[in-house]
Design a protein around this nucleic acid. Structure first.
Lengths: 346, 346
DNA sequence: GCGCGGACTGTAATCGATAACAGTGAGGTT
DNA sequence: AACCTCACTGTTATCGATTACAGTCCGCGC
């Protein structure tokens, strides 16, 4: 690849003039430079530009699992928003592992101008360091909790794009209770994650508000993975008093739960109603079609990207107060939830 | 972030010595430097290193649609392979659009050392330029065809990781024919893509080999998207002589096709058998469970990454002959395929 | 004591671009 | 004619690291 010196020589000007040409300033030798550029197929080196300017024109995106359709949709939303602005995406997949997440953040923090992070846990020193270093970040599905490393810095320059997890969980409980269910179980995600905790709390609060009984047996804390949903559901159906309905706190665990019910040939919703959190494009085609709490996934990514780009494109000195957005969720009723079967639970 | 000068000053040595310290050479002031580095929290700037060395320690990954579970799995495979080697991933989503793909390649080609591309079409000048510039690339699902821009350069330095598309299509036909189907339709992808063409040809060849009748009505050329599968299936079921089985050449179109059948309440496989290409984690849970031709998706990504890294890590001057790997596919029989219903097609 | 080799070190050029600064020359004004 | 202004241009330092080259210093052998 040609460099600016070769172009300058070919056009008979200095490198400064070529640089100005690319900055859009008016230049006497405009045509000669254009000709030399075309001839040599020259593009300014982004690396050299980065070094000089301190800006990378790249944003880091860290997700726990790109094969989870929700995160894929999130990345798609981010991508479409970033592309137009000339920012590249550097992607990291943390595999739901906090240590990997940490090392990913450390590895890319000098190559990006900002990050969008859907964190595994809420306390990550590498993320805190990135933010403390003055770089902007946007948290997806992670609120800022007190007493955590880097909390102070985060309150100032970190935007958050959340969904109303608690309301979603409440919506699910309300729906099931409205159908007549009383013995409602929950398969929750890790409680040290924002969505895990918020959905769990939303579930319990709504159960209490409706005066529904809640036994410890009916509460399973799992891991947001398909296998976790599978084994948790196995534990629930083996209970002496099997629940008539289950709220599963994310999409992968819901798939795992359905798979267990399928394997055991337990009719859904005949014997157990199931409702998940996070929609799936193929949810209507499942057997039975899965009722879910849906959130705007692509939009959540696009919003995160927009908040980040707003900071990155701000004029120096411009103060931008951190945003905390909460996107609405909705109940999508399909075939996996129905009235409880009066003939008993088996 | 501190720079090498500050570290050098703090340790009382020159920048060259600090640089050598990081290169692992033996240095008298080892401890003083280590101390200064820890104190200042210094990490060498990857941008400055890139500029000096000409290597970016990044690989570009371009996929048509990250929300397609196959590509998500592919990226996961690439990611896990790249992480260990200290290479970052720069991701681009082309949205199945050749022009976007082109501009993505152009935008990142100076920021990466190599690319893994799952191309939309087979002829892309930007990709050809990247390769002609001496950078290695790996094609996923795209063979090198004669007469295309950059063909010559590509033959020398481009590895390919394919799957045996034709064999997969033949396997599907064989399965359906074995069940007794004769009127078998196909919903193919774009014929200017390698998998589109190879699966299409594999289908037609096997139909001919088995002596099964083939009418133009039964051949639909679509676009590998869910909506395309939906509309193509609508055309097929409206045919006066409705086929008893359909081979759908990718996963998203298969979902679309199932959705149409679902919407029209056409029993599967009672009225029409359906078999897809590319498995889905939730395929067993669909209604009915979808029979598919399966390929090793994560492995395909990991393999592509390994081939690319092998070139990137090679000693200068080392000649590496280009590989063309074809991974095996397998038939997964589930509930969406059965014997044709003798009572007719409706 | 002198010279030599080996181990380490500092100086300075370099990668490719940008931008502050100091010209340069054409055109207009007095 | 002298001078000023304006629009553009070239020279050069700079971003942060690496590395060729040219030392420096120490211990050892003669």
């Amino acid at each position: 690849m040609a460099n600016i010196q070769q172009v300058a020589r070919a056009a008979g000007v200095s490198t400064a003039t070529v640089s100005r040409y690319f900055a859009g300033l008016s230049v006497r030798s405009h045509d000669a430079i254009a000709h030399a550029v075309a001839l040599l197929d020259y593009t300014p080196s982004p690396v050299a530009r980065s070094l000089k300017s301190g800006r990378n024109h790249a944003i880091g995106v860290i997700v726990p699992d790109i094969t989870n359709p929700f995160f894929a949709a999130l990345v798609k939303g981010i991508e479409s928003e970033a592309r137009g602005s000339g920012f590249e995406l550097i992607l990291g997949n943390s595999d739901e592992d906090a240590a990997i997440e940490s090392s990913l953040v450390a590895a890319i923090s000098q190559r990006v101008d900002g990050m969008i992070i859907a964190p595994v846990v809420e306390d990550d020193a590498a993320v805190a360091g990135f933010i403390a270093g003055g770089s902007p970040a946007v948290f997806v599905d992670r609120d800022i909790v007190a007493g955590v490393v880097g909390e102070t810095a985060a309150r100032q320059t970190v935007d958050r794009v959340l969904v109303d997890n608690a309301a979603g969980a409440a919506l699910a409980v309300e729906h099931l209770a409205g159908l007549g269910h009383r013995a409602i179980a929950v398969i929750s995600g890790p409680l040290d994650s924002t969505p895990g905790r918020a959905r769990h709390a939303g579930f319990l609060d709504e159960m209490a508000r409706l005066g529904l009984p809640m036994s410890a047996d009916l509460v399973r804390i799992s891991d947001f993975r398909e296998e976790g949903g599978y084994t948790s559901m196995a534990e629930l159906v083996d209970l002496p008093e099997r629940p008539t309905a289950v709220f599963v706190a994310n999409n992968l665990m819901a798939i795992g739960a359905l798979r267990l019910l399928n394997d055991r040939q337990i009719p859904v919703p005949g014997s157990v109603s199931v409702i998940g959190f996070d929609d799936l494009s193929f949810a209507p085609l499942l057997n039975p079609p899965l009722s879910v709490i849906r959130r705007p996934d692509v939009l959540q990514g696009a919003t995160a990207a927009r908040l980040l780009l707003r900071r990155l494109l701000a004029k120096p000195g411009e103060e931008i107060p951190p945003e905390r957005l909460s996107l609405p969720v909705e109940l999508v009723i399909r075939g996996s939830t129905s009235r409880p079967n009066p003939e008993g639970t088996r």
